[in-house]
Amino acid sequence: MKWTPQDIEMYAKSKEYVDTVVISLFPVSFGQEMKQSASMSEFLTLLTNQLERLFTGRILTLPPFTYLKNGNNEQWLPLLKQWEKKLQEEEVKHIVYLTSDSDWKMNEAELEGTLIWMPSLPLETMDDSQKFTLVQSQVKQLQQLVTQKWQENE
């Protein structure tokens, strides 16, 4: 389910079936890295949407966690922790973070949720069918990771 009023209505009715929340982590950079950060967010948005379509009935995608990129993600950690705390209160069982920002790797241990790092691919250089095939194959891997996680916990 997406972060839209229609889907949230559905969520409210079938909350017991939705045990997983997906949050994408969006770094925003300026200067030299500006384009790359835009590219990352385009890619992740596509991925998240596709993943949501596959698992509509069991995951809720939150609006992306967006932050200014300045070399160290330490400072955003407390904010994410607050989200996690809230989600746990809401009885969400699985939290999945999707990001192309490899710096999060360093903080992985401190996060409750599962961090999935996807290499960012320059979609802007591809035509539609290449894009489609590529995103499709990434989504497939993601899909496996998520189902695995569900199975581990059963």
Binding site: Y17, V18, L54, F55, T56, G57, R58
Partner: peptide, 9 residues
């Protein structure tokens, strides 16, 4: 392919 329960694929 849309599941009639809550819409997964």
């Amino acid at each position: 392919p849309t599941c009639k329960h809550l819409g997964c694929t």
